[in-house]
Structure formats: C-alpha cells, structure tokens
Design a protein around this nucleic acid. Sequence first.
DNA 1: CTATATTTGTGCTGTATAACATAGTTATAT
DNA 2: ATATAACTATGTTATACAGCACAAATATAG
Lengths: 233, 233
Amino acid sequence: MAKKQDYNIDFTAGLTDIWRILKDNEREILKNHASVHHFKKNQMIYCEGDQPQYLMCLLKGKVKIFKEGVGGRYQIIRMIKTVQYFGYRAYFAEEKYLTGASAFESTIVCMIPMRIVSELVRINSDLAFFFIKQLSVDLGIADERTVNLTQKHVRGRLAEALLFLIDSYGLEEDGATLNIYLAREDLASLSNMTTSNAIRTLSIFVSEKIITLDGRKIKIIDEEKLRKISKLG
Amino acid sequence: MAKKQDYNIDFTAGLTDIWRILKDNEREILKNHASVHHFKKNQMIYCEGDQPQYLMCLLKGKVKIFKEGVGGRYQIIRMIKTVQYFGYRAYFAEEKYLTGASAFESTIVCMIPMRIVSELVRINSDLAFFFIKQLSVDLGIADERTVNLTQKHVRGRLAEALLFLIDSYGLEEDGATLNIYLAREDLASLSNMTTSNAIRTLSIFVSEKIITLDGRKIKIIDEEKLRKISKLG
DNA sequence: CTATATTTGTGCTGTATAACATAGTTATAT
DNA sequence: ATATAACTATGTTATACAGCACAAATATAG
C-alpha cells in the first residue's frame, strides 16, 4: 500500500468533521499517524473476516460496502461518499469485519490506526460523541433499510435505490444524470434483486418516462414519480 | 407512569454494566435521576415518532422493538432481554424514534434521562466506549439481519428466529421448551413472513421432528437440524 | 485491431410465498 | 357462564420474482 508521501494531497482537508473536533496537540497525533492510500477501480479495501485496524476516510472516489449472503450472492449494505468515515465499526465491536469494502472507481482513502483513534476518543469526549452519533444514525438507516428491502416490491426497491444514489452522489451539471456509473449487477445488489430484474424494471421505468438510459448513464426525468413508487412499495 | 418508590426493587442491581463503569459520584447522579416503571403485557413503552428522552434498561420481562412497514405490516427489529439497554439510539442520532417498543409480558424498566446519560458520557470515557461498543455490535447485527431476511427462504428464516429466541431467552428446566410464549403473528413478524406461513412452516418442522408444539409452547427437539436449515437458507 | 470475455436486454418457465377463505380452537370480557 | 373476539390451522389460488436460455451490444485484453 502506498504511503502518504506518494500523494500530494492535503488529507487534513478531507478530515473536516474530525479535524474540527480535535485540539491542536490531538491533531498533531493524528497527522503523525495518518496515511493516504490509492485504490484502483474494483480493488478491495478490506475483506470480510479481516482484522479491522484503521479508521478510513474517503477522500476521493466511491466505495461500496457489501456482504456475502446465501450461496455467494452478495449484497451492497451501504455506499460511502467523500468525506465519509468507514471501517471502524468492527474494531469498536471487537469483531472481525462482517463486510467487505471495494473501490467503485479510482479512490483515495485516508487511514488512521484505530489504536490512535481509540486513544483520541478516550481523551476527547467530543470525538466520542461524534462516533456515537455516527453509529446511531447508521443503525437507524440499517433498520429502515431492513424494512424497505424486505417489504417493498422490486419497483419500490429500485426506485429507492435510485433516490439513494441521487442523494449520495448527486447529479451532473445537466441536473438529471446520475453522478455514478454502476453496472446493472451493482444496482441489483443494492436493491436486492436479480440482475435481470434490475434491467427489466429499469426499462419499464424508461417506458413510463421516469428515467432515460444511455448505457450506464441514468437520467432522472421524474423524481417525484420515483418518490411515489418508493413510498408505496 | 409509576415512580421508583412504587416498586421495592434494587434497580441498581440490574444496571450492572453501566454501574461497574461509573465512579461513586457519577453513580450518585444516576441514582438520583433513575426511575423504575412497570408495563403490562402488550403495553407500549414508546412509539414511533416520539421524542426520545430516556435510556432504558430492561430489569424484568421481555420487550420487542418493531417498525411499521408498507401497508401497516409491522416487523420486529430486535428483542430485548433483561439487563439490556435500549431506547437511546434515536436520542444520540438526534432523531425521533424510528421504532416502537412494547412489553411482551409484564415488564419492569429502569429509565434514566438521556440528558443525564449524555453528561455522564462526557465526563466518563469508559461510558462513552460502552455505548460505542453497544452501537457497533448492534449495527453489525442489523447488517447480518438484513442479508438473512432478504436472502433466506421461509424455512431458513424461521429456523433462525427460533435459534435467536433460544439464544436470547433460553430454555426452560426441561432443556427443550423455549422460554418465551409468543403468538404466531409475532414469530412471523420476527422472521418476516405471513402468519399463515409461520404456522405452516412450524407444523412442517413438527412433521420433520425438529420441534414439537403445545399451543404456544415450542419444544426444540433437534437444534442441530435447525442450525443446518438456517445456514443453508 | 481483432478475439474473447463481460455486460445488457428479453422472453419463457417454475416456484416460493403472499393472499384469501373457512373452520376449529383458545383467550378475554362482561 | 356465556358471548365475543382473537388466534391457530389448513387448503386453494394468484402472483411476484428467481432462474435459465440466448442474442446483441460493449468492454477488455492480447
């Protein structure tokens, strides 16, 4: 793995959330232990079963967190956008990683040893609250997600996935094209359905003038309708 | 709601986890603000949408945490056993409750204002770590659960629910009868299926000599087989 | 630049499971 | 004690969705 020296990035700029919380001497500690790593498209960042060691902050690119299910079928559990933190849950829970993470596209990640993070949490209660809040929010999202994935039908689940992608990565300058190009397979494993059904449902959405497709580019035409479909299930 | 004076319980005995962490003066603070409440069978402890105010610790009884899904169909998100803490996630996330909680049977809960808990977290980093760990573990469980509920078939999901109940509430003195009597409907909403399918699958399990039924009493005959069914999906 | 692999798109078939119906049984209330 | 409501049980039907097959379009590699 490449060290921070290899990349001419002010990685502290990306660490805003935590940076703001820390005192000067704590920032010094963090700076001395942080390193910046580059991952190529589809490269694994960590694997299910690995021993967690780092708090990671996504500086550039996109990351998917996924989990292998029954019969090798994998499911995307969450997706990380820039300046989001990830990879710390398992360490705090004193478990091995239950999920894997891989780079969706060329990605830069800042890594801070959890040993150091733990130490900072111990001496800075604001940082403790930061993680408590983060975990609490994520747990809420996970609970919502469970109900959505189990109770909604394919249309609802796909609509929701699209809305989630808009929310996470936004739209291009035209204000319509999704700012992420993912394979149908990924869209499927994000909305818990087979690839064929993702493809099929997408083209139904096209025929209903909710979206248009150009290869992997997805243009959102009628977000309101998506919202309605997602809500009704 | 009844105050602690109404119940002659040494509620601190139930708060072991947190109690052990606190210093004497912190214990004093907690003791002065804790109150003990009794809930009748099926009584709501808090509702989806409520403003969270208390850290709750289950001293006696059983509690289900559930969530309303599409078309009023509700789903059990988790179940609480004695000396487990609950009700704090939403407060830390600065959200309203996303779930509801109700007493499964006659239940006693100790409540501590989150305002006080937050204050203690601020001054005692061990308590901060306690919540960080708790939330991290729960988030892992939620992720596992999502995959299990979405990818496994009814048999696998029901088997898993039964194993979960053994794990959470244990067995009676005979070493076989589940120590919780729940309606088929609850078993269904725990394993994400319709009541009819829970009933049907249960009686299939009976015919396969995996369990026996006597009304709501469920006797586990072949736990190994349950484990196998759960694993295969 | 071609060859090979991967991804996408559609149609068809099978099946798991939801939805409904109905009856018997057990709780709950008055 | 009796009436009413809620739960349990089982059979039948309907349907959403997975699974497969195959062709076309893209992407990737040598």
